[in-house]
Design a protein around this nucleic acid. Structure first.
Length: 574
RNA sequence: GUCCCCGUAGUUCAAUGGAUAGAAUAGGAGCCUUCUAAGCUCUAGAUCGUGGUUCGAUUCCACGCGGGGAUACCA
């Protein structure tokens, strides 16, 4: 429902004597039952009267006492009082509102840090990471729109056991694998080798005690920056970073600050050692732990028996650095649900080691990404990488493009740009349309679908409207447009939907869930598409043409804005 | 065992405590001398179970059942 209209009607209801606390407004189930509904149950209960009688009386009273240009009349439907809006006023309000739909640049809400894609080096970037990346970017944009100053950060695990497993794997898996990878110019091929080597190391770690001992030794060497492995470590690390950077570019993601575990582990040891002296931590079984169980949580190890920091300890030092460098009012960690319990312990620990962090650290979990029919596991190297998926989607979009008729005036560079934008739109929409906390069972076939509830469908609707605007020669400045007294059902449906935009964005920010926007984009597309089929624009009589052009211009602008919040770019042709 | 998420049409997803629980997809039938057929129109099907709170529960609470995750020296 349109925010302005809701506030307006609430005001009118108060004017006829309804207490604010009884007013909640909803949408009627059918168009013919009005535009806004007021359920009177609460109010009737207070009066100790039958809700149906109350609704009847109230509707009558409202009509007698209220003079309003926007609300034409009220009518009782059972225990509801429904309001009918004047077409002309409604259209004026919404189209005017369309003018105001723009990213805000205000900087008044404070500073937040959004930390996402905490991808480890030496590991494949799979579709789970892809969801994180796309979600994180959208959350950044939503909060920027809401008026926050947003610091974009990522934290890479470039030291620790997973690297040790990989380096050990490189050494033992294939005699000439590493040399072959070095000779290969393709980063993606190099990363495939890294993935295989990691998988081998991880499997041997579990199967073979001797390998396990050696890998632990490798881990110590990494922390000690041992010259014996320095070269292979640095080389493979830079491959990983190069690969990540390529993916960020593909996704149109940037960061203000890249944090690495390697820059915090020294300080991590200090923090825990100091905390041990202060009684925050305690020794247990040779390790240094935080007694989470004393706070209804669970115990965690911060320094292992070898005196090396676990990721728990490193996170303490990271937080210290983040607050020190940016003084954020809040830090949102966009991390998978499996870390949810861990993060509770971490945040509790931070209250002791870094009191200023109290109440400012938040976990933004998101659902798991499973492959339909397949079990994904980076331990066995059995993953669908982001790159594989994007390549597959691109191929499918390209096929469509080649067989499409509407590419007459499109140059080959333009065509490549379209394929790029539509493909990324398809992938991003596929991940964002599901509610944030819900798991996604990902179907590659479905993700390359271009019909129905998909990115390409939405972009297609926009492209068709843009095409009309491009062909237009009429003057559609605000001063030249007249709103008709009566809207047809298709025009009306589009206008009602357009009016919901602001409220939806608000909900999305509140819930930190871009899927609300994605759903809205789809709904707006559907009603706009019906309008497209039923209402000729360019062939209409002058007044109607100008009005409808204004309407579709607002649709395009609103869609583009919604897409921008999702990190998706529209196209002119497809 | 304990703790945390999640259970809605065949499938993938919606639904600030409100009226007849919506879409998409899969199947069937139509629609291109008409602003792009990546489109449109018509056609069936669902709230895991049992209680509780409420005028009203998919939504909130309790207990089951089912799926996933976490639970000490990996991240």
């Amino acid at each position: 429902m349109i925010g302005y209209v809701r506030d307006h009607i609430a005001g009118l209801l108060e004017a006829v004597g309804i207490g604010e606390q009884y007013i909640t407004l909803t949408d009627p189930p059918q168009k013919k039952m009005g535009d806004v509904a007021f359920p009177v149950f609460q109010y009737a209960k207070e009066l100790k009267k039958n809700p149906i009688e109350v609704a009847n009386g109230l509707a009558e009273k409202f009509n007698q006492e209220t003079e309003d240009t926007l609300v034409e009349r009220a009518e009782a439907f059972g225990p509801y009082v429904n309001f009918f809006l004047n077409d002309r006023e409604l259209a004026s309000v919404v189209l005017n509102l369309g003018e105001r739909v723009r990213p805000r640049v205000a900087d008044s809400q404070g500073t937040i840090m959004i930390e996402f894609i905490c991808a480890n080096t030496h590991k494949a970037f799979h579709i789970g990471h892809l969801r994180n990346a796309i979600l994180g970017e959208s959350l950044v944009r939503l909060h920027e729109y809401a008026g926050y100053r947003v610091i974009r950060t990522t934290y890479g695990g470039d030291v620790g056991m997973h690297i040790a497993k990989c380096l050990w794997g490189i050494e033992h898996w294939q005699d000439d694998g590493y040399d072959a990878a070095k000779k290969n110019v393709l980063v993606s091929e190099r990363m495939k080798f890294i993935g295989k080597a990691y998988a081998y190391g991880a499997t041997q770690f579990e199967k073979d005690e001797k390998a396990q001992e050696e890998i632990k030794r490798y881990n110590e060497m990494i922390y000690q920056k041992d010259p014996g492995i320095a070269d292979v470590y640095e080389t493979t690390r830079s491959w990983s970073l190069e690969n990540l950077e390529r993916i960020y570019q593909l996704l149109d993601i940037r960061f203000d600050r890249y944090y690495f575990e390697s820059e915090v582990f020294d300080r991590a040891i200090e923090i825990v050692s100091e905390g041990l002296a202060n009684g925050i931590f305690e020794k247990s079984d040779g390790a240094v732990i935080f007694r989470g169980s004393a706070h209804d949580l669970h115990d965690r190890v911060f320094l292992n028996r070898a005196g090396l920091p676990t990721y728990e300890a490193k996170d303490l030092a990271l937080a210290e650095k983040q607050f020190d460098e940016f003084h954020p009012d809040a830090i949102y960690h966009v991390i998978g649900p499996e870390q949810s319990e861990y993060l509770k312990v971490l945040f509790k620990t931070l209250e002791f080691t870094l009191p200023e962090s109290k109440g400012k650290e938040f976990h933004i979990p998101y659902g798991w990404v499973d492959l339909k029919g397949v079990k994904m596991s980076s331990r066995t190297g059995d993953v669908v990488t982001a790159e594989d998926l994007i390549a597959e989607v691109k191929m499918s979009i390209r096929e469509h493009m080649d067989s499409s008729e509407a590419k007459a005036n499109v140059s080959s560079e333009e065509k490549e740009r379209i394929i790029e934008n539509v493909s990324m739109g398809a992938v991003k929409y596929a991940f964002l349309k599901t509610g944030r906390v819900n798991n996604i069972t990902f179907d590659v076939q479905e993700s390359i679908s271009t019909s129905g509830d998909s990115g390409p469908y939405l972009l297609y609707i926009v492209a068709r409207f843009k095409s009309i605007l491009a062909k237009n020669t009429s003057d559609i400045r605000v001063s030249s447009v007249t709103v008709p007294d009566v809207l047809n059902p298709f025009e009306r449906a589009v206008i009602m939907k357009l009016g919901e935009f602001e409220g939806v964005v608000h909900e999305a920010i509140e819930a930190k869930d871009p899927s609300k926007i994605a759903h809205y984009q789809f709904e707006l597309s559907q009603v706009a598409n019906q309008f497209y089929h039923e209402c000729p624009v360019l062939d209409s009589e002058e007044m109607v043409r100008r009005f409808r052009l204004t309407l579709i211009e607002t649709v395009v602008r609103t869609m583009e804005h919604g897409f921008d919040l999702l990190g998706i770019t529209t196209v002119e042709n497809m």
